[in-house]
Write a protein that binds this DNA or RNA. Structure first.
Lengths: 244, 244
DNA sequence: TCAAAAGTGTTCTACTTACACCCATGC
DNA sequence: GCATGGGTGTAAGTAGAACACTTTTGA
């Protein structure tokens, strides 16, 4: 916010990139678009676009989300992830990008975007392989994945991946898919049904193909999980980016 | 990162603002500068400056930190907090700012900055009162405070507030000052001396004015605290910014 | 009656909490 | 000695992990 008239201020373009996660086919998938022009022509990239004159980054993220998925943002979780600013990240010039993380359920198979790009859902593991993504998007995607994983520990956002009505088992599958590990059904049920405000009972039930019907719940308001629901102890992992 | 040649791209200036925290006089204090020009002439603000052509935001944050405190960043913790982008946040025009959080110990009383601004350490509680800060800096400072508080739960960054050599009680005071609540000395000691890699014993001791000498430790490498060291249960607080 | 999934109960262990108590130093 | 802070021990309560067991449905 200050004040050095003699410094060489960068002429900067600002974009917003979206990491849109959903759970499909028992996998965590991310929405990617095929680039229609250079650089990285034909390669896959995160959806995104330029910040406009009168909007906040949040506005821009919501607008891009709507353009790419047709979803209006009311029923999904959207949060700012981090801003990426390597001067070399875009060969065309100085472009910094604010990355956003969006978590949703039941997101539509995307239609062609505004400039006729093809968009696809792809498993996150696949997208992270082999320099498949343009720019620094693999790095952004990696950060988003870690953020999603840890948010599942400390908050109730996992419900953002579920439909309007869902069972405890539906929610457990979200955790299992995103954490990549199996959870004990009994302990999971106890934990989250006790956590105040995580689930709202509806009294309705869902009859499965086979087996006992399951109670259906609605998501409660998003909040912190207290106590948190920790992944199994991995040892020592650095949390968050540190500069120095 | 994309691709709408016809959109009205914003002409944006990019700055970096620093929330530099230190513990002085048993209080959490933040470094503020007195603005030397309009807008908000004479008011207090977070130190910061414009992003330059060939640097990352991290580089810019380190540079500003050095300019404001003379500290070279090697001995403190620095991380990106969030980017603030309200179109009205700066009356001069479109300026978005990437806020950084810096945690340090024993930071010097700042000298006059490059453009002869006065800089002060001020208790965070005081700085948050009464619209004292320029721009949206009170909001940034509030976010930084919450980030610092929660990082103390999940990581070992609290040692960033301590000098080279410190006692368990020194570290406990950091937690008490930042969380604003008293902690049981016995349980605190057990918890953090067990946490692998939090503290490195030095074999040295410090003789206090009165009482038994205390063992001196050095900080271990920063990492996640597992299991975390949770603040006492506050109920339901929203963690992190959510857009929709 | 059987398979399958939902849901409950039980035991063991580990961690938190609260607090009593001992230790090492200066005065 | 005694005051002061450093440091250890311990018992009660709570939460997680593992897993046996019961319930409810369709076939």
């Amino acid at each position: 916010m200050t004040h050095d008239p003699d410094s060489d201020r960068a002429a900067v373009s600002v974009t917003v990139d979206l990491v849109i996660f959903t759970v499909r086919d028992d996998e965590l998938q991310v929405l990617l678009v095929e680039r229609g022009k250079a650089p990285y022509l034909g390669q896959l990239a995160l959806p995104g676009g330029h910040l406009r004159g009168k909007e906040t980054l949040d506005d821009a993220a919501l607008r891009e989300l709507k353009e790419e998925t047709g979803v209006d943002g009311a029923h999904l979780h959207l949060e700012q992830l981090r801003t990426y600013s390597d001067p070399q990240r875009d060969p065309r010039g100085r472009v910094i990008t604010a990355a956003y993380l969006a978590l949703g359920s039941n997101l539509p198979v995307p239609v062609a975007g505004t400039d006729a790009r093809e968009a696809y859902w792809m498993p996150v593991g696949t997208a992270l392989h082999d320099h498949m993504l343009a720019f620094d998007h693999a790095s952004i995607l990696g950060d988003a994945l870690e953020r999603a994983r840890s948010k599942l520990e400390y908050t109730t956002v996992a419900t953002a991946f579920c439909r309007e009505l869902f069972t405890v088992t539906d929610l457990r599958r979200v955790y299992e898919v995103i954490w990549g590990s199996a959870l004990d059904p009994s302990n999971f049920r106890r934990k989250i049904t006790r956590a105040d405000g995580f689930l709202e009972p509806t009294g309705q039930r869902r009859i499965p193909a086979t087996g006992r019907p399951a109670s259906l719940y609605r998501k409660g308001p998003p909040h912190l999980l207290m106590p948190p629901f920790l992944r199994s102890y991995n040892g020592t992992l650095e949390q968050g980016a540190q500069v120095a």
